[in-house]
Design a protein around this nucleic acid. Structure first.
Lengths: 75, 75
DNA sequence: TTAATTGTGGACTTTTAAGTCTACAATTAA
DNA sequence: TTAATTGTAGACTTAAAAGTCCACAATTAA
């Protein structure tokens, strides 16, 4: 099943992917800049994960942005 | 053990508590405005939980704020 | 053509959030 | 004083995130 928050996860993931591609980073690049496995990031980008606060902060660290920016997408 | 992200959780929790108290909401009040148990919210406010994306959005809904605002605290 | 890179998915274990409920001490209101 | 409210913690189950690793097809570079 897709789960109650699937749309939210999808929107988050789409936004994350944009932010990553804007910086011309591959999944493995981003992975090396934070403490998240590249396959995990792939799953997040594809809306498969309801990630935790800590992961949001890790991604922000890797992207070099304020964590708030990762929540800056339309629902 | 406190865990790797304990400080982050503490800061998030402190911030959440402020936002709730600014609105004069009790834990049970806030709980009734979102889909989170009041005892869960208590644990989040006290830095005991590395909450998920969906919970951040639930809290934002209950507080009537943009989810981004929940990440607007100093690390 | 060969070699490297890239995104993705699966397998698997361990950890923990979510969800639900109960209870209780301390504070506040009636 | 009594009753209600408030914050908190514990017990317990279920679901799933985290974490790690491997494999592979497709794309891109050498």
């Amino acid at each position: 099943m897709k789960g109650k928050y699937y749309e939210l996860q999808e929107n988050f993931g789409r936004h994350l992917k944009l932010l990553r591609e804007e910086r011309s980073l591959s999944l493995r690049d981003l992975s090396s800049l934070c403490e998240l496995d590249s396959s995990k990031i792939s799953k997040i980008e594809n809306g498969k994960t309801n990630l935790q606060l800590s992961s949001i902060f890790e991604l922000a660290k890797g992207l070099g942005i304020d964590p708030k920016e990762l929540l800056d997408f339309k629902i």
